[in-house]
Simulated scan of single mutants.
Amino acid sequence: MKIVVISDTHLPKSKKGLPARLIVELQHADMIMHAGDWQTIDVYKKLQLYARVEGVYGNVDDLEIIGLFPLKKIVEVYGYKIGITHGHGKGKTTEKRAIAAFEGEKVDCIIFGHSHIPVNRYEGEILIFNPGSPTDKRRQKQYSFGVFSLSDKIVAELIYFDEE
């Protein structure tokens, strides 16, 4: 199973649409996970054209997105429990807030966004993953998103690309 993982699309503020490099992966996705800051419902509608979409809202999302998605959620796929949160808030780093959001809950992976800084590492047995942003790289050298392959384990890859 292939899951495309994105966050912080900020459309249409950052760019007019989804980048071509992301669309290539979306065409082969079985599922899409979005860790918030969609900006508008139009992003959700576009992503739905490719695969089932799971997600959460972020700190800049409009009321329509907030009404559709929770602040955090756990999605079970192929027996894996994947936690999704945006990671915004006060105190601690974004990554530490994301990890704290699932304290006491059994998850195999935590996906978060907010910082626009890609992360792909393990903390103990838990995969900690931030896909960065495919449309707003901020201080990063390249735009990014993630791809998960699920089988007997979660194989997580960050995809980096330049603006097209």
Rank of each mutant, 00 (worst) to 15 (best):
V119W: 04
S7F: 09
P118I: 08
D42S: 14
F129A: 10
I111L: 15
I74T: 11
L158H: 03
V5Y: 04
E54K: 15
F112C: 03
I41K: 13
Y44L: 14
R52M: 12
F145P: 00
I3V: 12
A101T: 13
S14I: 07
K16V: 05
R121H: 07
F102E: 03
I126T: 13
S151K: 15
V24W: 11
R139W: 10
Q140S: 08
R139L: 12
E25C: 04
R52G: 11
H114A: 01
V119S: 02
H28P: 03
N120Q: 10
D61R: 03
S14A: 15
H34Y: 09
Y78R: 11
L150F: 08
K92Y: 14
G58T: 08
G83L: 06
K15T: 06
L71K: 15
D8K: 00
D30Q: 07
A98W: 07
G17A: 13
K137T: 12
I65V: 11
I99C: 01
K92M: 15
G36I: 08
L150M: 06
V4D: 01
F161K: 01
Y80Q: 05
F112E: 05
E163G: 10
K13H: 15
Y80P: 05
N120V: 09
L18K: 01
T40I: 10
E25K: 11
V24S: 13
S133C: 06
H28G: 11
A51Q: 04
G17M: 12
D30A: 05
F112V: 04
V60P: 07
Q27T: 12
T94M: 09
G104H: 05
K72M: 12
G83D: 07
F129Q: 12
H86G: 09
A51L: 03
K46D: 15
M1D: 11
A156C: 02
E123V: 12
V24E: 15
S151M: 10
V56R: 11
G124N: 08
R139T: 13
G89D: 14
K15I: 03
H34S: 09
V119M: 00
E25Q: 09
L71I: 12
L18G: 03
R121C: 10
A51C: 04
R138P: 04
I82M: 01
I3K: 00
